[in-house]
């Protein structure tokens, strides 16, 4: 199952530097369509930086430079004529902390379609996105209440719904469960299995069990270097690299 898929997103010899500090060093990593790829590694290994380069979120940090290229559907998203706004419409993102807008549940989900000029059938769009994020049943009677009254786990699923409202092809998730309790975490992990039918997911996580549970492919990074990449089962049970084995068995990190 893990092999029969197209590469949708691909990092080619990507290096990312903050000023003259290299955070990601010549990483080449394919992301397969309708698969979940997790990126694991100790704090500061560059996994979040790499993830953020997939939808050009590093553009907002001063003095970040990227060399190499990232291709999405065979187009380099860092080409001079590439529009980062268009890139982010296709490649959505969910952040570490649940961060709904201080608006109603409905307005949170409706904002992205609204600013894109999609104003017809808004109720359907909102319902669709909330259903995909497995939140609809819990909030359908209070769509016009503040999103900030939701629990942490519900807020994070709302953030997922908000990211899904524009039907992106890829969803990037930056430690989406690290601020959540185990029950909420389990719900989101279940959700990921359903979502990969429709889209492609890249997830950065601190939690190795999570990577082992949810992902089809795993990449292990350390000090900005991609140490090992492969099918999750292989990487966890029979890693090629000494450091990978030490990390996944919990000997450091």
């Amino acid at each position: 199952m893990t092999q029969t898929s197209e590469v949708l997103l691909q990092a080619n010899a990507v290096s990312i530097a903050y000023g003259d500090q290299l955070a990601v060093k010549t990483v080449t990593l394919p992301i397969y369509q309708h698969r979940i790829t997790s990126i694991i590694g100790p704090s500061g290994c560059g996994k979040s930086t790499l993830l953020r380069s997939f939808n050009r979120m590093n553009d907002f940090i001063d003095q970040v430079t990227l060399t190499g290229e990232i291709s999405f559907n065979d187009q380099n998203i860092y080409a001079p004529d590439a529009d980062p706004v268009a890139v982010r419409l296709n490649i959505g993102m969910v952040f570490q902390k649940p961060n709904p807008f201080p608006k109603t549940i409905y307005d949170n989900v409706a904002w992205a379609p609204k600013i894109n000029g999609l104003k017809d059938n808004m109720d359907d769009r909102v319902e669709q996105a909330l259903k995909q994020a497995a939140l609809w049943d819990e909030v359908k009677d209070r769509l016009h209440e503040s999103a900030l009254n939701l629990s942490g786990g519900q807020q994070q699923r709302l953030c997922i719904a908000r990211a899904l409202a524009m039907n992106p092809l890829v969803l990037l998730m930056d430690e989406p469960c690290s601020a959540l309790d185990p029950v909420s975490t389990a719900r989101i992990e279940d959700l990921l299995f359903e979502l990969k039918e429709k889209l492609t997911i890249v997830i950065v996580t601190h939690n190795m069990q999570q990577a082992a549970r949810v992902s089809d492919f795993t990449a292990f990074m350390e000090n900005g270097i991609l140490i090992e990449y492969g099918p999750t089962e292989t990487l966890f049970t029979n890693p090629e690299n000494q450091r990978t084995e030490e990390y996944v068995t919990g000997r450091f990190g």
Binding site: N55, M57, G92, K97, N99, F101, I115, N116, M166
Partner: peptide, 25 residues
Amino acid sequence: SSLRQVAFALGATRWQVTRDHVLPQ
């Protein structure tokens, strides 16, 4: 800045982020 980030990640232009999120806040 997390508010700006998430708005940008949804494919907003800087003007939309400023008008809908930064200025109201």
